[in-house]
Nucleic acid binder design. Structure first.
Lengths: 159, 159
DNA sequence: ACATAGGGGACTGTTTCAGTCCTATATGGG
DNA sequence: CCCATATAGGACTGAAACAGTCCCCTATGT
């Protein structure tokens, strides 16, 4: 689950860059500034536009702009724009009408909703503004997390 | 990101099943009870044992048991047991020695740590006990949390 | 000793991912 | 009006990860 795809990484980088520097940006410029290969950056920006995270202006002097203020866009929106709706198992995905044949298992799997909600909530609380302009309090949190990562890594051998 | 793999789904189902019914269980029995193909269930259980989520007893009358009480095992442990450490981008993964050549981008990508921490915290707060025996209080919390996420976005996040 | 049950890894077909490229469409400026 | 610019959308490909199975080894209770 928690290994994010490169495309999503790019999306966050691009969106954060848009948040940090106001005004319309051509895909080419964004690609150069973020060191992301141009056609790939373009692809990502298209998806962001489709999802309503950014707005696009076609034609000469066109480009991309954030659809809303950075404080009003959670990273969950950016992630979902690339990876689709956050639905963990088919069983917990309400768009599919496929009912579980095994009631006993469904009882267990229905709890995936808890996990979905918890993760989505955590992601929605981080906005592009937080990503673009991290305050000192946030930086402390980041520093602490790296220690925590050490601890977790020592506890279990990696593969 | 947030589409979980089937293996991880299996892992949670198996671990939850172990939490719900105390005592040692053979992989075969667990596979039958959870409707998971036997060799696959066995593979998952091996990983859970490696990660220290469950303990195994070899030989005749052997089987698997939870390593700790259900309340003491967060679903993040189960997920990490299958998918490896929660590290989102190479840049934020400290096991790789590859330093970012582009300082400007690194500044942006370092913020992935925020996301990692937020997600991991959310997952660690859900235990196998919650999954096995969801109480009414928890269900209320789920319903409330989605509304709360909206409200919390305006305020400063977390402690 | 023997049947039982997990440990570990090799192997394979399928799917997804990352990245590129091509064509169509919209738009501003000379 | 025409052209350079810039996004929209999708087709295509090689590489990598996933899901699942199978085999051989080791441990253990009867």
């Amino acid at each position: 689950m928690l290994r994010i795809s490169k495309m999503t990484d790019y999306a966050v980088v691009l969106a954060t860059h848009l948040a940090a520097t106001e005004g319309p940006h051509a895909a080419r410029d964004l690609a150069v500034q973020t060191q992301i290969p141009e056609p790939t950056a373009s692809k990502v920006l298209k998806k962001l536009a489709r999802a309503g995270v950014v707005v696009s202006q076609r034609g000469a002097k066109g480009g991309y702009t954030l659809a809303r203020l950075p404080e009003q866009i959670g990273v969950n929106e950016v992630i979902e724009a690339i990876e689709g709706p956050i639905a963990v198992t088919e069983c917990s995905d309400e768009t599919t009408d496929s009912l579980c044949e095994y009631e006993t298992n469904c009882g267990v799997r229905a709890n995936w909703q808890r996990i979905n909600v918890a993760v989505q909530r955590a992601l929605s609380e981080i906005t592009l503004a937080d990503m673009a302009f991290p305050g000192t309090a946030e930086l402390v949190l980041i520093a602490r997390s790296s220690q925590e990562a050490e601890r977790l890594r020592a506890a279990e051998p990696m593969e």
